[in-house]
């Protein structure tokens, strides 16, 4: 009677499996990061459109310069922060790698290094905020020019810092689970991988903030 029905398709899209070859948890993190990218994208685009029409934008390389050995070295702290965040991204990648290979203690060690990197970054940021605030930078004005400079500084770095902070907390929770052997029992370190995606995304955003806010 019902002879014309199609044979069951065997494509990856045919249902009963993940078309992307990843489980829902990881896909969800990807999609979340996509939407978060739009929040940051929104901020950065607004920043860009304000920046191009504001004539008296302070020179960031002067503002963020550090006095060291009697010389003024531009953007030194920011360069160091970038170094720290990229390093922590590297250790995170190695932690995920260790997870793939099921090496529980190595995974935990690299995770702790990553957290350390994150905390160092936050420390630097706290120092930077304090320094700028003592120099008179406020959300509504600063000694050097366009008032939006301070506003965008606090908004962009603050929002990013908030992501780093949540990342540190998130990674701590994951580390605890690694140490307790939750993933080892489950036979998959996917949880670490998902956390890794988040952490790399935070690094990714910093690449753009570093480029467009500090270097431009």
């Amino acid at each position: 009677m019902q002879t014309q029905t199609q044979p069951m398709q065997e494509s990856v899209w045919a249902g009963g499996r993940s078309p992307f070859g990843i489980r829902w948890g990881k896909l969800m993190m990807w999609v979340f990061l996509l939407s978060d990218a739009f929040t940051f994208g929104g901020f950065l685009v607004i920043y860009g459109s304000v920046r191009v029409i504001t004539p008296d934008w302070p020179d960031p390389s002067r503002v963020f310069a550090l006095h060291l050995f009697g010389k003024e070295i531009p953007l030194l702290l920011i360069a160091f922060m970038t170094f720290v965040l990229i390093s922590s991204s590297g250790t995170m990648a190695l932690a995920v790698h260790a997870g793939y290979e099921g090496d529980r203690s190595r995974c935990a060690r690299f995770l702790m290094l990553t957290i350390l990197g994150g905390l160092t970054f936050l420390g630097c940021q706290a120092y930077e905020w304090t320094k700028l605030i003592t120099e008179g930078v406020r959300p509504w004005g600063n000694p050097w020019g366009a008032p939006q400079f301070g506003a965008f500084f606090f908004t962009l770095t603050g929002f990013h810092g908030l992501h780093v902070l949540s990342g540190v907390i998130y990674l701590s929770a994951i580390t605890r689970r690694v140490l307790k052997g939750v993933y080892a029992r489950r036979g998959s370190y996917e949880g670490v991988e998902i956390a890794g995606l988040y952490w790399h995304f935070v690094d990714l955003v910093w690449v753009f903030i570093f480029t467009f806010f500090y270097l431009f």
């Binding site: 990856v12 990218a37 994208g41």
Partner: peptide, 29 residues
């Protein structure tokens, strides 16, 4: 950004469908 996404975030080792699904919408920016 490309290096981070491709290697650290393993995008290079994912299926093409995921790469499209994640990267194409970012064009809306």
């Amino acid at each position: 950004a490309g290096l981070i996404v491709a290697y650290f975030m393993h995008m290079r080792f994912e299926r093409l469908s995921l790469i499209y699904a994640i990267l194409l919408p970012t064009l809306l920016v």
